[in-house]
């Protein structure tokens, strides 16, 4: 720091009360902060431009309708499917399958990740397989799953589980290993048992990793859902997309793709919200 000879008017930053409170960073110059309304407006305009460009290209561009139906056609198709109920029944099925698959995945992946990360023998024995499964394109497993359980709903659930579990697992597994050893020693010095070390030190230190792992699993699970519906389903969004594509119904294909994208965005946003809640709770309360 340079010393100035001006004793008066000390820097205002040093006078901020409650220095130990968590403070917002001082707003940087030249970087605008948008209000909530501005952000929403921005998103709406952004989307509108996207659809407008799409519409213009489809209508006046030199692209066959089969490759690129116009936005109006796509939305008309959506409305029709919604009225017929095809949209809602299939969306419902996909959602249900996805939720069941994810619930199973997390119920397996979180405890397993904690265990593999925390217990050396398990780590030695299993981590290679976990990483192999994580790295491998999950679509490879589809034929085996069909062989085992047949073409039905459980095949779809299986592929979701096999997609989501390794992604969540590796994050949590590695997270457990980052636990500060001196904290474990401190707990032991007070006579903590292994279980107590786990509950009072390992678990809380791993919370951020669990949150990230869940988010990874959620997005990988969506991939699994889609693969499953492409291969094995006779209903669900993915199935409708394949059917529509097979029958060259491009408006329907695009419409359902749009629905699937929205579905994914909704799932990931929900997890992000959950993640933020968890981290906030950790900060303010116990």
């Amino acid at each position: 720091m340079t010393t100035t000879l001006r004793p008066a008017s000390p820097s205002p930053r040093t006078l901020v009360p409650g220095v130990f409170r968590r403070q917002k960073m001082p707003r940087r110059r030249g970087r605008r902060v948008f209000s909530r309304r501005q952000r929403i407006l921005f998103s709406v305009v952004n989307l509108a431009c996207f659809f407008l460009a799409w519409e213009l290209i489809a209508r006046y561009g030199d692209v066959p309708t089969l490759f690129m139906p116009s936005v109006t056609d796509v939305f008309a198709e959506l409305v029709e499917m919604s009225e017929e109920g095809i949209l809602w029944s299939n969306l419902g099925i996909s959602l249900l399958i996805y939720i069941v698959g994810m619930a199973l995945s997390l119920a397996v992946a979180i405890p397993a990740g904690l265990a593999i990360g925390g217990i050396k023998v398990l780590d030695k024995a299993l981590s290679t397989y976990v990483w192999a499964l994580y790295t491998m394109p999950r679509i490879v497993l589809m034929p085996i799953i069909i062989l085992w359980v047949g073409i039905n709903d459980s095949a779809r659930i299986w592929i979701i589980v096999l997609s989501a579990v390794p992604a969540t697992l590796v994050v949590i597994m590695e997270g457990v290993k980052t636990v500060d050893n001196s904290l474990l020693v401190a707990a032991r010095s007070f006579g903590a048992s292994r279980g107590q070390c786990f509950a009072k030190v390992v678990m809380p230190s791993t919370v951020p990793f669990i949150a990230t792992g869940v988010r990874m699993g959620v997005s990988r699970g969506l991939l699994g859902l889609f693969i499953g519906e492409l291969f094995t389903a006779d209903n669900g969004i993915g199935f409708i997309i394949t059917q529509a594509a097979k029958t060259f119904n491009s408006a329907q294909t695009y419409a359902m793709l749009l629905v699937f994208v929205l579905f994914c965005v909704a799932m990931v946003s929900a997890t992000q919200l959950l993640e933020r809640k968890v981290m906030e709770g950790r900060r303010s309360s116990d």
């Binding site: 500060d180 001196s182 904290l183 020693v185 401190a186 032991r188 010095s189 007070f190 006579g191 009072k200 030190v201 809380p204 230190s205 919370v207 950790r282």
Partner: peptide, 18 residues
């Protein structure tokens, strides 16, 4: 092993950050 009749003040504090 550690017992409850002893307590340690650690050189590196070892406080739980959460």
């Amino acid at each position: 092993g550690p017992e409850t009749d002893r307590a340690v003040v650690f050189q590196d504090y070892a406080l739980m950050p959460w």
